[in-house]
Design a protein around this nucleic acid. Structure first.
Lengths: 132, 132
DNA sequence: CCTGATTCCTACTAAATAAGTCGGGTTATC
DNA sequence: GATAACCCGACTTATTTAGTAGGAATCAGG
């Protein structure tokens, strides 16, 4: 489970939005609360907005907010936007072929869990059962 | 579950050794069977030997073989040697803190599974239950 | 003791990715 | 029109990845 700094920042920013009372949250607030370099954060928020996960408003009292309820945005949604879709790996020849099944199972378990957990879970601090 | 080409090659080479009848297997055989660039494979096998996972013998009829029974070498053993020990990630501040638990749970599940599956499982084509 | 097969070892390189930074443009409110 | 905010593409720097190069050392058989 290796996530790039960019992806981790995106998740943290999104959780910050989920936790905020309704209304626009300026990037500065997120940057400070989550200790994310300001210009880098801009960049990331832009990507999230283009993907339709968040909305934005310019000018004084502008900022960002979630485009959907926090309970309807999963961690997988965000990761997918930032990391893009993973291209499939090459085949494993001969006796190593069963390795594909192992790696596939790991990926699948991971995807399932990340698709289940929403920003509401995280921001509310009440996570579903993680032990499966 | 992102594994570098180097790590995948290491796993595949190890499985190839596990599947071979006893006696040294020359790097050339592995290289061809698993379609791994020869010089790169040398490099990887060297690393596995230095870590004590495999043994080697030079000269005609030389080659490589597992240092322990295939049932006693897990995929995690090999991955650990190649990728090194993962340093811990930074803390997630404020409301994003629960994300740590999520990522930790994923990592743990993954580590457990990889520690359970051995080269014997893979080479024999009979994997334990992957659905947990 | 020579030849060929094989591993051993360090160093190098090219390409891709990651992690930001920069400079300015645009929009909205007062 | 000043100020607060987002918008956007391009750029930079460091690290990692995926190998490659060039040979040295070792071993068996003839």
């Amino acid at each position: 489970m290796r996530l790039s700094a960019r992806t981790q920042y995106a998740l943290r920013a999104a959780v910050e939005l989920a936790a905020a009372p309704s209304g626009p949250v300026p990037a500065d607030r997120i940057s400070i609360a989550q200790r994310i370099p300001r210009r880098f954060l801009d960049n990331i928020l832009l990507q999230l907005r283009r993907a339709g996960l968040i909305n934005s408003q310019r000018g004084p009292d502008g900022g960002y907010w979630l485009a959907r309820p926090a309970a309807e945005i999963s961690l997988a949604d965000i990761i997918l936007v930032i990391e893009g879709v993973a291209q499939e790996h090459e085949r494993f020849p001969g006796v190593s072929e069963p390795l594909e099944k192992v790696l596939g199972a790991l990926r699948e378990h991971q995807d399932n869990l990340l698709a289940e957990i929403t920003l509401a879970h995280v921001a509310g601090g009440s996570l579903p059962d993680l032990s499966r």
